[in-house]
Design a binder for these strands. Structure first.
Length: 206
DNA sequence: TAGTCCCG
DNA sequence: ACAA
């Protein structure tokens, strides 16, 4: 583990290849029940570049009318999200430093040309809990800034199996994905990148 | 403002 | 910077 800044822990290659393959298998099982959908932005209705699903008691969703939110069911099927795979609950125990378990695991799939603009993860009630992020598949250029728009940013290449934790004073830092490096990994047969984001949504105490 | 466009 |  290396500390990139106060509250940012970076675990390069935390998951070895067999563990990555097992995670992909687990996510495939999730997506069979909770199919990937294209999220759209509030008000404008503009589609995001990623395709998305969730597992856990709550999932992050967005649409034109109701905006960003967490809800217990898939927006298209109405079914409950599948449970978070045990390996990811174990990861949280290993790196989060937070007693209560994660409630949401957002699954973002990036195609070759997908990007994600700088944003804050701020739709949770519990900012004391960190955000834990897992990269699988193709490399990406990840960018992280400060807690306000327009500040200086830093870029780094994230690789398959990497884990990054944003907590403490870095919990609300802006971050995004500027580009995918197509065919940089052989993990996913059809290419692309999967990002898994574990979050605590509700307040852990009382 | 989790996107897109345009400029230096 | 945008425009809801």
């Amino acid at each position: 583990m290396s500390t990139l800044a106060e509250g940012i822990s970076y675990y390069p290659d935390h998951f070895d290849r067999p563990a990555q393959e097992a995670l992909v298998d687990a996510i495939r099982d999730v997506v069979r029940v909770a199919p990937l959908f294209v999220p759209v932005m509030p008000r404008t209705g503009k589609p995001m570049h990623v395709r998305m699903s969730n597992c856990g008691q709550l999932g992050w969703v967005t649409d034109k009318d109701n905006g960003y939110r967490y809800q217990p069911t898939h927006p298209q099927t109405g079914r409950a999200w599948p449970p978070i795979p045990p390996a990811l609950l174990q990861l949280w125990d290993d790196v989060a430093g937070f007693d209560a378990p994660p409630e949401a695991c957002l699954i973002n799939f990036y195609g070759d040309s997908a990007k994600m603009g700088l944003h804050q993860d701020r739709d949770e009630q519990e900012f004391a809990a960190p955000v834990v992020s897992v990269s699988l598949g193709d490399d990406c250029l990840f960018r992280i800034g400060g807690t306000e728009r327009g500040g200086p940013t830093q870029s780094m290449r994230l690789r398959s199996g990497d884990v990054i934790v944003l907590g403490g004073p870095s919990r609300l830092r802006y971050h995004g994905v500027d580009r995918i490096y197509p065919a940089s990994s052989t993990l996913l047969k059809d290419g692309g990148r999967i990002n898994l984001t574990l979050r605590r949504v509700s307040n852990a105490s009382i």
